[in-house]
């Protein structure tokens, strides 16, 4: 272990700002990239369900 305390770990030998800024921004971009397909998928499934219901409703009358 390179660091003796949590405070020292966060300080990163005076470079804390730069290290944590880098990791924070990376986390942000990765999170967006993970969330985007999940949200998109949910929207697609919802639309698909609507379409199927509509088709079922229209089928007997047609």
């Amino acid at each position: 272990m390179e660091f003796n305390s949590l405070a020292e770990f966060i300080a990163m030998g005076r470079h804390g700002l730069y290290v944590w800024l880098s990791y924070g921004l990376t986390a942000l971009i990765v999170t967006y990239n993970v969330m985007q397909p999940a949200l998109h998928r949910r929207r697609l499934l919802k639309e698909q369900a609507q379409r199927l219901r509509r088709e079922k409703r229209n089928a007997p009358s047609a």
Partner: peptide, 15 residues
């Protein structure tokens, strides 16, 4: 946590 700090750049090398 475990990698040693760089002798020139200190802890900023962890980026």
């Amino acid at each position: 946590l475990y990698a040693p700090a760089d002798y020139q750049q200190g802890d900023s090398f962890r980026i």
